[in-house]
Design a protein around this nucleic acid. Structure first.
Lengths: 129, 129
DNA sequence: TATAGTCCTTCCAGTGACTGGAAGGTCAAG
DNA sequence: CTTGACCTTCCAGTCACTGGAAGGACTATA
């Protein structure tokens, strides 16, 4: 398979696949004409990466996960630890965003939003505390 | 005021303040020795920026907000529109994170996490659908 | 056979918002 | 007169791509 077809089937831009090769996440063969020649296994790996990325894992986490996936002697505890850690980070981010949202929503509600210049949002940003 | 004191009082690293000057968000005077000389107004501006950044506004949004803050003829509607747009983006991010969290939490719960290799998390990442 | 159009290649640079570090100037205290 | 804290500029790195230029390869059609 050429990169275009793999890109479509894995749902990843060709550019990103080249980048993944650059950083050693996939190592496709090469055809005689210099084109990358992807196997079904390469495609499978890329789809795995796409799903892991969609769950918010960093590239380095993805590298680790791929390693575990391909390691027959892995311990599921290692996978679970990684995923649990990531889950905690997601929770933290959600909490942060919720705080931002609460504060900003309060300011937005207080703002009449008309042609006049006085604005509780700007006041909120300008005040200390 | 020198940069160190401003950094402490505004709660922003000195490096970041220099960066903000680089991109034109603040324009402190210079002392004879070449040090940046911040006024109380500069400090106020930086504190404003810190709060806007803490609410998740982008630097460009912050630039706009500062402009509105300093424009006596602003219309609060413009501020509200910007904030409302940002609020929607926060909501979208929260929704995305919640989806990630739900999916990953389901996988983590299904994983026994012991010394054995079979792992629903990896299976989930490997499977299509 | 010429050509047009699509695919592929590499390489370089830019994104956002900093952050780290090197190399060196300035200032206050002892 | 030295030590140490503070300041300066400049360059490079982060993360995960993304855009674009310049050029080679392949396919279909006139």
């Amino acid at each position: 398979m050429n990169i275009g077809q793999v890109a479509e089937r894995a749902g990843i831009p060709a550019k990103t696949i080249r980048y993944y090769e650059d950083i050693g996440l996939v190592r496709p063969q090469r055809s005689e004409n210099g084109y990358r020649a992807f196997s079904e296994q390469d495609l499978h790996k890329l789809a795995f990466l796409a799903r892991a990325r969609a769950l918010g894992f960093t590239i380095e986490d993805c590298r680790t996960l791929l390693g575990l996936y391909e390691d027959e002697a892995r311990e599921s505890a290692d996978v679970k630890a990684l995923a649990t850690e990531h889950l905690a980070q997601i929770e933290e981010k959600i909490a942060q965003l919720r705080e931002m949202h609460a504060t900003l929503a309060r300011l937005v509600e207080a703002c009449h939003g008309d042609h006049r210049p006085d604005c509780p949002i700007l006041q909120g940003l300008a005040e200390e505390g």
